[in-house]
Amino acid sequence: KLETFPLDVLVNTAAEDLPRGVDPSRKENHLSDEDFKAVFGMTRSAFANLPLWKQQNLKKEKGLF
């Protein structure tokens, strides 16, 4: 399991300012399950079932792209 970080560490943070080991294209993977659901309004599995373009739009909207 990946290390999780608080939302404010990941949202609207440039790649070079992210904690070590965080993939800038997969910031959402480093949210706790609770934060993930609070941000996206759905579970990880529901998010994973969305088309890629919709996932990317949601990530942009939430500052996690």
Rank of each mutant, 00 (worst) to 15 (best):
L50P: 00
D23A: 03
L50Q: 05
K62W: 06
K60E: 11
N29G: 08
T43P: 09
D23K: 04
S32F: 02
D23I: 05
F5H: 07
A14C: 14
Q55S: 02
V22H: 03
D8M: 11
S32V: 04
L58R: 02
N49M: 14
S32R: 07
F65E: 14
R44Q: 06
H30R: 03
Q55F: 00
V39C: 12
N57H: 13
S25Y: 14
E61D: 11
V9H: 06
E34L: 09
L52E: 12
H30D: 03
T43N: 11
K62N: 12
E3W: 06
K1F: 12
E16K: 12
T43H: 08
L58M: 12
P6K: 03
K54L: 15
G21R: 05
K27G: 03
A46G: 07
N12H: 10
V39W: 04
R26A: 10
A14S: 13
L64C: 06
L31D: 01
F47Q: 00
K62Y: 09
L31A: 01
D8T: 10
N57P: 00
A15K: 10
L2K: 11
A15N: 15
T13Q: 08
G63E: 04
V11D: 03
N12R: 08
V39E: 02
V39N: 02
D8C: 13
T4K: 09
F65A: 15
L64S: 02
R44G: 01
V39Y: 05
G41F: 06
T43K: 06
F5G: 02
P6V: 03
V22R: 02
A48F: 12
G63H: 05
G21K: 05
F40C: 01
N57C: 15
V9N: 05
G41W: 04
F65D: 15
L58E: 02
A38S: 12
S32D: 07
L58S: 02
V11T: 09
E28Y: 02
H30M: 04
V9D: 06
L7C: 07
P19I: 03
R20G: 12
E3P: 14
G63Y: 05
K37L: 15
L52F: 13
A15D: 15
T4D: 04
W53F: 09
N57W: 12
T43M: 07
D17W: 07
A48S: 11
W53K: 08
P24A: 10
V22Y: 03
F47N: 00
L10E: 03
V11W: 06
E3R: 07
R44C: 02
